[in-house]
Every structure is written in C-alpha cells, then in structure tokens.
Amino acid sequence: MLIDWFTVGAQALNFLILVWLMRRFLYQPILHAIDQREQRIAAELAAADAQKAEALQIRAEFEHKKNELDQQRAALLQQAVETAQAEAQRLSEAARQAADALRVQRLQTLRNEVHNLNLEISRGMQREIFAIARKTLADLADTALEERLAAVFTRRLAEMPAPDRQGFAEALKMTKEPALLRCAFDLPPEQRATLQNALNESFAADIAIRFETAPDLIGGIELSANGWKLAWNMADYLESLENQLGELIKQPSQPETPAAGEPETAAEPSPSGAAE
C-alpha cells in the first residue's frame, strides 16, 4: 500500500502548521518590511516632488521678478535718456539765450561806446570850433564869441514872428518864476546885461532872468518860460559835420575833393533856431 492514511493526515497537519509558521515568521515580517520601505520611498518621492514643485514655483517667481526688474530698468533708462535729452535741450536753449543776451549786451555796449565816442567827438569838436570861432572873431573883428552869441540871440529875438512874441510875452507874464536863460558857457556880466536889455525891450517889460550854464547846449543859448522856448545853437552845424565825416569814413576810397571847402561852409554863420 503506497498511501498510509495516518501519514496523510499527519502531513496535512504538518503542512497547515508550516503554513502558519511561514505566515508568522516569513510573509508578514517581510511584506511589512517591503511595505514600510515602499511607503518611505513614496514619501521621499513625494517630498522630492513637492520640493521640485516648490523649486519650480520659486523659479517662476524669480523669472517673473527678473522680467519685472528688466522692464523697470528699461523704463528707468528710457526715462533717464529722455530727461537727459530734455536737460541737454534746456541747457542748449539757456546757453543760446545767454549767448544772445550777451551778444545784445555787447551790441548795446558797442552802441553806447559809439554814442559816447560821438558825444566826445562832438564835444571836442564843439570846443575846437568854439576855440577857432573865438580866435577868428577876436583876430578878425576884434570881438568875443560870447558877444557875438548875445548879438545873434538878440537879433533872433528881434526877428521873432509877432504871434510867437505875443505868446511868449503872455507866458512870461503869467509865470511868477524868473525866465530861465541857459548858455553853454558862463556869460560875462556885459553880455548878461545886454541880453537883459534886449529881453526887456523885446517884451516891453522888466523880465526877471535866471542865468544857468549848460554845456550840453552845444555852443548855444536858450530862453524858456512857462512852456515857451527860444533857442539858438550849433547842433545843426555839428550834425552836418558829423554826417559828412561819417560819409568820409564809410567811403575811404573816394577822393577827398568834396571835403576841401567844407570848413568855410561849416563856419558860415547861418544860424537856425526854433521857437515853440
């Protein structure tokens, strides 16, 4: 008999015991260890995934910030360039204006200098002309310039048109202040007396006169009272002379023939006056 039924039962029991033993000592501990390890690996992988996700998020944030910074930098740069350009334009404009102002100022200064020079020349000429006139008069007619001036003024007074004379007379009457007689130089007492007499005779009244020396009259004499004025001076002569000299300076190449007879012409006593 190949089958022993007691052995069959015992072996079945042995097998069941072995199954229990193996479950107890082999499968459960080993499977538990494997599960633990797998859980641990899964946890580590999850942590790694989380870290990766976090890193990616941080990277995205960083890139976003970097882009923002780039844009800000570009904007600031653009702004700085625009500001610099505007500043450069402003400075250029200011410099141009300053240069213009300086140019105008220099022009003005030049004009002033020219004017002063002209004035100086006029005065010099005036002095020279008076000196010449005085000397000429003294040599030829044995008379003083002041005397001739007073004479000329007296003549002008006498030749004054009637309406003007009347107006002047009324003005002299109405004012209480003395009439002002200005002359380019100090008049000697004789001339003053002559002029006083001439005025008294001309206006048929005792005219109060206040004498005053005014060098700017250019060798002239002027009577003013209450808005009326009677004057004679050499300004016209001088102006004519200046013009002719100016023409000479402007045309240096022209022959100087026209200037030959000028002194006589200029020295001619053709007085001009104005009464207002």
Partner: peptide
C-alpha cells in the same frame, strides 16, 4: 516521511526566524 518533514519544517522556521529577526526597513 514525518521525520524528514519535521526536519524541513524546523530548518525552514529556524532559518526564516534567524533572518527576519532583525529586519531592516
């Protein structure tokens, strides 16, 4: 049969027990 079976069971159990005594996780 029984004796050799017991011997195998003993060997398996002891061997497995020895190995799984200090399992590493």
């Amino acid at each position: 049969t029984l004796v050799f079976t017991w011997a195998l069971m003993l060997a398996m159990t002891v061997g497995v027990k020895l190995i799984t005594r200090r399992l590493s996780y």
